[in-house]
Design a protein around this nucleic acid. Sequence first.
DNA 1: TGTTGGCACTCTCCACCATAGAGTGCTAAC
DNA 2: GTTAGCACTCTATGGTGGAGAGTGCCAACA
Lengths: 356, 356
Amino acid sequence: MARRNRRPLGPLDLRTQAILRAVIEEYVTTATPVGSQALVERYGLGVSSATVRSILAELEANGLLTHPHTSAGRIPTDSGYRFYVESIVEAVPLPAVEQLMIRHQFGQVEFASEHWFRLAATTLASMTRSAGLATPAKPRDAHIRRIDLVAINERMASLILVLREGAIKQALVTLEAGESIDQPTLNAVAAILNERLVNQTATRGEARLGSLREDDRVEQLARRVGDRVVKVVREYDAATIEEVFSDGLLNVMEAPEFAQSDKLRRVFSALENRAYLGQLVGTVAGAGRVQVYIGHENQPLDMRDVSLVLAPYGRPGHAIGVVGVLGPTRMSYSQAIGTVRFVSGLMNELVDHLYA
Amino acid sequence: MARRNRRPLGPLDLRTQAILRAVIEEYVTTATPVGSQALVERYGLGVSSATVRSILAELEANGLLTHPHTSAGRIPTDSGYRFYVESIVEAVPLPAVEQLMIRHQFGQVEFASEHWFRLAATTLASMTRSAGLATPAKPRDAHIRRIDLVAINERMASLILVLREGAIKQALVTLEAGESIDQPTLNAVAAILNERLVNQTATRGEARLGSLREDDRVEQLARRVGDRVVKVVREYDAATIEEVFSDGLLNVMEAPEFAQSDKLRRVFSALENRAYLGQLVGTVAGAGRVQVYIGHENQPLDMRDVSLVLAPYGRPGHAIGVVGVLGPTRMSYSQAIGTVRFVSGLMNELVDHLYA
DNA sequence: TGTTGGCACTCTCCACCATAGAGTGCTAAC
DNA sequence: GTTAGCACTCTATGGTGGAGAGTGCCAACA
């Protein structure tokens, strides 16, 4: 038999694809290497185990499967999963019953974006038995919706900044020696700032602060606070990611591949790796559809044992967030993709509803 | 030799205490059962290993130490740690250098309670090499500081509620068919509500809504929104605990006692056990000083392998929060108690500063 | 009465070995 | 191209046998 060297992933024979698919689906459910015998028994392939063996060898030569050791069955490589996700499997749409159930849950919760994305993470976690991830929708350039100043004591006031995209930012303003601090003055300052800054972005807002007079006590204070407002909005704009909320990590920890505690630890620190998650989220937000990151496709070492299925939600051009799941590379990609697609679609509806 | 039955923890011989202390401190650093030989070698006890052995046997009879198996050294029981914490060890005050370092870190961060309690958790985690825990300061009966209404679209408005204790709550208000929705109307409603509800608790505020007229369009809306405000404040009051922020769980996961992955999983789910943590936080908030919960003293099974050192901060009667650490039962209680005491003291200062 | 050296005993840990079982790769025949 | 057969390899499992650590007890001693 001609053993071919690893060829550049050309089109695969239909039967070969079917066997790759069988191996992956069997391995996903059993978590143990799958042998030629098991395949012919359980998947009615109509050929003998010897034939299957030669195909398995071919798939291995192509880098889609491996051996843990000589006398073990095959397990998919990351490339194998990649090929499966790209070419073989079609995303399974979420069953109608479960769609209804999720819609119901979203109906139960109060109408606030903060609740939504947490619920999305929780829902994804329980549906896929993996860890669910979600970030709040974050705009590219936030618009100021409302500015409020509340006196705390003689020298400090709390600045409350409502953004059009639903986020609320808070900052403490410390007043200088000569400045007034009573609530009426603060109200006057807030009025000035609201008049000038509402519906503005940081950059446009900053320009509109220029005309404030330096000789007027209130306008001078308004200018200082206004600068602060601009600064807070700028910081918010610059932050790649506000927060990644995750739920259901325990699901992932129960997977047998993480029975060794160092692997388990790695999974955990993967989820703490906010920097990388933040970066991914940025990419996904730009991509506009479900993205899959499998095992070694993730650069950080901690992430090499896990896969991510992520999708953006929100309104392109306005605010974008990301939802998805994190699980072992041995996960049911078809189910995960279907579920993530549905949940991100649902989130889209909700956001639209809010903007309509 | 008279083997006494487990006696009710009477006063212990000074030398016996010294040996218990030595066992605990040795075990805390080495994480392996400690034998009589090691004790005489490393702790200059001035007696032979045989003598130490008989004392160890006595401590074991008292339930303060155990054996993993016949030919192993001794390890402390939870009662042993308890006795140690109560009677033997005095909390080590944090070294001045580290006090300064922590103060410096708090100086770097922006003056906002939200940042503080997160920083407190992070600091505790890195100082004690355990998981740091912190909750925001939460009042018993929150006072309304400011109410704001921002129109979102024709039918919805965002209600923003600033509480005197620093928290901000947000809710969505859906308007009924006939109601106005423009921002000027909302401003008028907010003005009415601010006039009546500012500096009130939920209960007192509710009473002051009674006089709003039903026949006036704006006052009627104010009443509806006001009811909502009261409801949100009530919910906030009722919540035992807002949020437990934790950091540095990886520190704990590295402890050798959690090398087995099921134990590791248990530690993780312990930290997810918000219900129990919330309950503890309530108790600690009432207690007023550093509290230690050791291993089996925690009811939940997940918590049986870990200890908590917690302390309240804030102003009794106003707002109270909790900071502390979670680590393996084999932790350095003296250091943990010292560090937690210092950080809670520091948080007290900061809160005082804000209220002054 | 408390302390000590001595000693037998117990238990874990580790390395080693043998065996059973699973699954492969190869070959020869169809 | 497919298949049956077979030798081969590697893991997993369980049993064995020291080596080592540390105890508990005892008899002697201050």
